[in-house]
């Protein structure tokens, strides 16, 4: 079709009116691109229709512009994918939506937080009980070490080549009582093993005496630890004729209470 044929076909008018089929639309757009004269003719047709429309113009209510611009603003600030129902809004309304991904993320964070608190609580309980067990074990270990140390001291005293064991035998007052002394011949140190003495009553304490030149000399208090007697170091004596143990008031006496003598041994 030549340019005159196109212009007189009436297709440009239909195109301007929006009445052409898809095929005709493509055809017209092709011509418009190809021929400046056709473009010019179409422009004139459209301008005349524009004027025709202008003759029928009616000013819409001013609220429409507000609605459009608030809608555009909310679309730009929020999710712009969908145009919400325009009919529903009698006045400008901004719709603020919390995006779905944010809701999901918030829910996930809350779940993780709750889980974390539960785990924390569980771990803290386990930590506490483990810590308690550790303290118990440490205390037990410490006691064992002390017992070991005491026993080691006992054994050292007994096995020392210079130690002279002296057995203190029960007096008629306490025939079943028994005690041992280890007297270091080289240093004069005296150790006592009171393990076969009866338990001292409350407020009472055993006291060791060395008999030197017929006179009793205080050799120290025998301490009782948790009811168990260990070998313990007493005062040092270079010479003594006898050793005796009496039951005295706690803290000891300056002179022995003779009727409370439990054991005695002469060297």
């Amino acid at each position: 079709m030549n340019k005159e044929g196109i212009i007189s076909s009436g297709l440009l008018e239909l195109y301007a009116m929006g009445l052409t089929s898809a095929e005709e639309t493509r055809q017209v757009e092709g011509w418009v691109n190809q021929y400046p004269e056709i473009k010019q003719e179409l422009d004139a047709i459209e301008a005349s229709l524009e004027s025709y429309a202008k003759a029928h113009a009616i000013v819409p209510s001013s609220s429409v512009k507000d609605k459009i611009f608030s809608h555009i603003a909310s679309e730009q600030s929020a999710d712009a994918n969908k145009i919400p129902s325009i009919k529903a809004a009698p006045a400008p309304q901004k719709v603020y939506r919390i995006p779905t991904y944010f809701k999901v993320a918030a829910a996930a964070i809350i779940i993780v937080l709750i889980g974390s608190v539960a785990l924390n609580y569980s771990y803290y309980s386990k930590y506490q009980s483990a810590n308690n067990e550790l303290q118990v074990a440490q205390e037990k270990l410490r006691q064992n070490e002390q017992a070991n140390l005491a026993m080691k001291t006992d054994i050292n005293v007994m096995s020392d080549k210079n130690s002279l064991p002296v057995v203190l035998k029960g007096t008629p007052h306490a025939p079943d009582a028994l005690a041992k002394i280890y007297w270091m011949k080289n240093t004069g140190e005296v150790y006592v093993d009171p393990s076969n003495l009866p338990s001292a009553p409350a407020g009472k304490q055993y006291q060791l005496w060395a008999i030197i030149d017929g006179k009793p000399v205080d050799a120290g208090m025998i301490s009782t630890k948790q009811g168990i007697y260990h070998i313990q170091k007493m005062k040092t004596f270079g010479s003594a004729q006898a050793f005796a143990i009496t039951l005295e008031k706690a803290g000891g006496s300056p002179t022995p209470t003779m009727d409370q003598m439990y054991v005695i041994a002469k060297i």
Binding site: A16, G18, D43, E46, E50, A53
Partner: peptide
């Protein structure tokens, strides 16, 4: 704009 006037497009 090659396919027609702005008003025509808006009108359609």
């Amino acid at each position: 704009s090659d396919k027609g006037r702005l008003f025509t497009w808006m009108l359609n």
